[in-house]
């Protein structure tokens, strides 16, 4: 097999590859322009998934939401759940949040299901981007039957840095 490659063609090949990439991105943004607009306006939240639309064996995943979405969701009745241990919750937590430690989720979720309907909007958070507990709690809530679960990945640090209301003993 002749393996000689004419490298003088490489700039043209690279340029065409970039053009294909750009065209694909443009088409994607055009087709999803409504989603992109909502995203830029901070209106994207976790989609509601009907129970019968979920095939058996498929694990649902909570979608991340930003700080502006959390603020607007709280004013419209969403429930904010703090996935950290209760000691940390008592020290400081986002105003209006409930303590819902991941370690106690298996005992707390049945009570929450009696209190709230499956379509209730729930947002979990913990100690920022390095903390996986809020995500793990979101997965548990979805697995339990809640259909509208989101994760505020910025958590306490982003909320505090934004100067938004914090409650606690600190």
């Amino acid at each position: 097999m002749n393996n000689h490659f004419d490298f003088s063609e490489m700039p043209r090949i690279l340029l065409e590859a970039v053009l294909i990439l750009s065209l694909g991105i443009t088409v994607g943004l055009a087709v999803n322009h409504r989603l992109v607009t909502d995203l830029l306006e901070g209106n994207v939240v976790a989609p509601q998934v009907a129970t019968d639309a979920v095939p058996a064996g498929i694990e649902l995943l909570p979608l991340p939401v930003d700080i502006a979405t959390v603020q607007s969701a709280l004013t419209s009745g969403s429930v904010l759940l703090d996935a950290r241990i209760s000691e940390l919750f008592n020290e400081e937590h986002i105003s209006g949040a409930r303590s819902f430690p991941l370690d106690e989720a298996d005992t707390l979720i049945p009570a929450l299901m009696e209190e709230l309907p499956p379509e209730a909007s729930l947002i979990t958070y913990c100690n920022g981007y390095g903390c996986p507990d809020s995500y793990a709690l979101g997965v548990k809530l979805l697995a339990a039957g809640f259909r509208n679960v989101a994760v505020f990945e910025g958590g306490i640090p982003e909320w505090r840095d934004a100067g938004l209301p914090i409650e606690g003993e600190k």
Binding site: G24, G28, L29
Partner: peptide, 9 residues
């Protein structure tokens, strides 16, 4: 929103 369309193209 964009990656699938690059793959399709």
């Amino acid at each position: 929103a964009t990656l699938p369309y690059v793959e399709i193209l």
